[in-house]
Design a protein around this nucleic acid. Structure first.
Lengths: 150, 150
DNA sequence: AATAATTGATATTTATAAATATCAATTATA
DNA sequence: TATAATTGATATTTATAAATATCAATTATT
């Protein structure tokens, strides 16, 4: 409430119950989405989750996809798996070969442990792959953009 | 039965009832998939549908996606909409500007009437965009391939 | 000190997509 | 000529995903 004017929308501020209330859903549902790899809330040292305004936006998007657009959770996972992360983070051929996410086509890259490639040091929550695709509907435009460079 | 040895798998031979039996589903379901734009069966001059062996394969894939992988029909539509058709058929900038499918991100290109661009003359059923993606899981590899050319 | 969040496994409810089935009049097939 | 496919709109059934809710022991927050 206090510093809302200067608040960065990416700052994790809402505890899970507050986030659930803002979205009109239960805490259980929020955790279900997290287990499915659709979201990546901020984890404090204490292991308590915190959600930012951007997280809330992302979640609204997910809710819309499920409830209005009738895409199942498994469907959203498959769509997110098509984000061309290897181009966004500029993976080398070696990085790709070492990357489980690169080979996979069922889950978003941020649901993997990147132990062997350049994403090892990266915090997925602040990675452009995660941040750029709050809205699933932007993936096609990204693919267009990347194939246009040729 | 007769010429099965020399039969091209793309030749439309099975009437809808036969196709339904081969898949263990009803004729209604088959038409539902068609209305959703997931398949494009051959239409005779008489307007009766005929399905090829390749169509049956495609349908098995769709069944697997729905029943085992738990992707909803709306989800499959969104995934198919991400096939980079503009690259496969080599659309010009002008073609793209004239193409409804290019702008869309909810349905596969073959569900549109291509009246104004190079696909106008094309029969989607024999188009490589349709033929190459019998299996949805191949889309990511295509995107990789196309972004690798750079 | 009281309230809230954590884990994970499981159970229940509810909402709805998917699948099947009508209808009837028409046309095509074998 | 009997059987099968066509249209489109609508209705019903059924299967299951999505959502909510348990549990209890532990830890964190305010």
């Amino acid at each position: 409430m206090r510093s809302e004017i200067i608040q960065n929308p990416d700052t994790p501020i809402y505890p899970i119950r507050t986030a659930a209330k803002m979205l009109g859903i239960s805490v259980y549902t929020l955790r279900m989405y997290e287990r499915a790899g659709l979201i990546l809330p901020f984890q404090k040292e204490s292991s308590h989750r915190l959600y930012s305004d951007t997280d809330i936006e992302r979640l609204k998007c997910i809710r819309r996809a499920i409830n209005e657009e009738k895409i199942s959770i498994a469907g959203i996972q498959r769509i997110q798996a098509l984000i061309p992360c290897w181009e966004i983070v500029q993976c080398s051929q070696r990085d790709r070969n070492q990357c489980e996410a690169f080979r996979n086509h069922t889950q978003a890259c941020w649901t993997f442990n990147h132990l062997k490639n350049k994403c090892k040091k990266r915090n997925c929550r602040s990675c452009p792959v995660y941040k750029e695709f709050i809205d699933c509907s932007k993936i096609k435009n990204k693919i267009i953009e990347l194939t246009e460079k040729i």
